[in-house]
């Protein structure tokens, strides 16, 4: 087995940014902190990236973009702070994430309260993401989708998990008053009936949209013109 040095040795400088100071410093005591040049930056406003143009060799975003209201604006800023021909790699929750919870909560509210109000933030659709990246100036786009289905013992365990992920405000931020409790009680029965697994657990779907986009630059490879291919892919794939 070839031995390669830890990835941290290949990173000159890493800037970590989040609007939550607590989250940003959660792992500040772990050993890796001394092994790479890491700067933490608390964002005063998660929709404003306070860096100069052409600053970074790469920008990563892991499961936080779904909190952004102005996604096109933030993506354009990400494009701006990247150096030419540098990539943005991101993963965000989107599309049908938590569709089970949305549907059953809607039914529960409709039946208990006679109306519905949104409890799960609207999320970007998979097919929107390519367009958004393109509009923000990114080239050579890759967008892929992964559904992660997690089974929970009951809806309360799911909601506690969402809260622990920092994703719970919309659902649990409200007072657990008499009405809230009725809806949660109704929701437990409906969720199980509508989506429940045979073994008594309930599934929750997290749809992760993975994306890669490159800032335009230099002698970056360009996609070939449509119809300009000369080799049939089928010959290559079935050739050997």
């Amino acid at each position: 087995m070839p031995v390669s040095p830890p990835l941290s040795q290949k990173i000159g400088s890493l800037v970590a940014a989040d609007s939550s100071e607590t989250l940003l410093h959660r792992d500040a005591d772990l050993p890796f902190n001394s092994e790479l040049k890491l700067t933490r930056h608390v964002l005063a406003d998660e929709e404003t990236l306070p860096w100069d143009s052409n600053t970074f060799d790469m920008v990563l975003s892991s499961l936080s973009l779904h909190w952004i209201n102005d996604l096109p604006g933030v993506l354009a800023q990400v494009n701006n702070i990247l150096k030419p021909d540098a990539p943005f790699i991101g993963a965000m929750l989107g599309g049908d994430t938590l569709f089970e919870l949305r549907t059953s909560l809607q039914l529960a509210e409709q039946e208990r309260r006679g109306g519905i109000s949104p409890h799960v933030s609207p999320l970007a659709d998979t097919r929107d993401v390519g367009g958004l990246l393109g509009k923000a100036g990114f080239k050579m786009l890759t967008v892929d989708v992964e559904d992660i289905v997690v089974d929970y013992p009951d809806t309360f365990a799911l909601m506690q998990d969402l809260q622990a992920m920092g994703e719970g405000n919309a659902v649990l931020g409200r007072e657990m008053g008499a009405i809230g409790r009725d809806v949660l009680l109704a929701n437990e029965g409906i969720y199980r009936e509508l989506h429940g697994n045979e073994d008594g657990t309930i599934p929750a779907t997290f749809r992760v949209i993975h994306m890669i986009g490159w800032k335009e630059g230099g002698d970056q490879p360009q996609p070939l013109k449509r119809g300009s291919g000369e080799v049939n892919l089928k010959d290559i794939l079935e050739g050997q």
Binding site: I190, R192, E193, L194
Partner: peptide, 11 residues
């Protein structure tokens, strides 16, 4: 049991 009966009624 009660939750299931209620759920069935809705669904």
């Amino acid at each position: 049991a009660e939750a299931s009966v209620y759920g069935k009624c809705i669904v």
